[in-house]
C-alpha cells in the first residue's frame, strides 16, 4: 500500500487561474485597444471635418463667383423697394389732395345779392410741432390735417346769410365743405360806413372742409 502526497509549494498569489483568459494580459490589451479605438474615432472625425471644410470652401467659392450677378439682382430689388416706398409716400400726398376750384367757382353763383363778401380766408397748414431730439422721425406722425374756410362780409339781413349757409349744404359744396356755421356774436353793426350803416350787418361764416388725410 502506498500513499500519494501532493506538495503545494506555491504562495497563494502565485496561483494561476485555469481559465485561458488571463487578466494580466487582457487588461492592458483592453486599455490599448480603447486608446486605438479612440484614435480611430478621432481620425474618422478628422476626416469628416476635412470633408466638410472642403464642401464649405467649394460653396464659398461658388458664392463668390455668383456674387456680382446676385448683387445686380439685389440692386434691382432695392431699387424696386425704394421706388415703391417713394410712390407710397407720394400717394399719401395725392390721397390728401382737396380740389377747391369747383366749389370756389360755384360760390359766386350762390352768394345772395344782398351779401357782399369782404374776405375769404383758407389758412395755410399749421407749422408742424418741433422735432423731438430724443425720438427723431423722418416725417410728421399725425396723418390728419384740418382745413377751414372763413368768409366775412356785409349783408342787409341775417336771412341772407342763412340762405348762403343752406347753399353750403347742397351738392355743389359737399365734396369740399363738411359743415358750416355762423359763430356766436358773428353779426355786428357796420360802423365803418356812413348812411346805410344802420341797415348793414357785418357777418362771419366758418366752414370745416374735408380733412386732408396723409395716409
Amino acid at each position: 500500500m502506498s500513499n500519494v502526497y501532493h506538495l503545494n509549494l506555491l504562495q497563494p498569489e502565485e496561483h494561476l487561474s485555469s481559465s485561458p483568459i488571463r487578466l494580466r494580459v487582457m487588461l492592458p490589451m483592453f486599455a490599448l485597444l480603447s486608446a486605438l479605438g479612440v484614435g480611430v474615432w478621432w481620425s474618422v472625425l478628422a476626416g469628416r471635418v476635412h470633408a466638410v471644410t472642403q464642401q464649405k470652401s467649394a460653396i464659398e467659392a461658388n458664392l463668390a463667383q455668383l456674387k456680382p450677378t446676385h448683387e445686380t439682382v439685389l440692386g434691382l430689388r432695392t431699387e424696386q423697394h425704394d421706388l415703391t416706398a417713394t410712390l407710397e409716400q407720394l400717394a399719401y400726398y395725392t390721397r390728401a389732395q382737396l380740389r377747391f376750384g369747383p366749389s370756389l367757382q360755384a360760390l359766386a353763383h350762390h352768394v345772395p345779392d344782398q351779401i357782399q363778401l369782404t374776405e375769404l380766408h383758407i389758412p395755410p397748414p399749421p407749422e408742424p410741432p418741433p422735432p423731438d431730439p430724443k425720438n427723431p422721425v423722418w416725417g410728421p406722425t399725425n396723418p390728419i390735417e384740418r382745413v377751414t374756410l372763413r368768409l366775412t362780409g356785409r349783408t342787409t339781413g341775417a336771412s341772407q346769410v342763412e340762405t348762403l349757409l343752406r347753399a353750403f349744404r347742397t351738392e355743389a359744396f359737399t365734396n369740399l365743405i363738411r359743415s358750416a356755421q355762423i359763430p356766436k356774436g358773428a353779426y355786428r353793426q357796420d360802423t365803418t360806413r356812413r348812411g346805410a350803416a344802420k341797415e348793414t350787418l357785418l357777418f362771419e361764416l366758418n366752414c370745416e372742409c374735408a380733412l386732408r388725410r396723409f395716409e
Binding site: D82, A85, T86, E88, Q89, W138, P140, P143
Partner: peptide, 14 residues
C-alpha cells in the same frame, strides 16, 4: 413741410 413717411422709409424723402 415734411411729408408723412410710409413704414418703409424711402431713400429720397418728399
Amino acid at each position: 413741410l415734411r411729408l408723412q413717411v410710409p413704414k418703409q422709409v424711402p431713400l429720397h424723402l418728399y
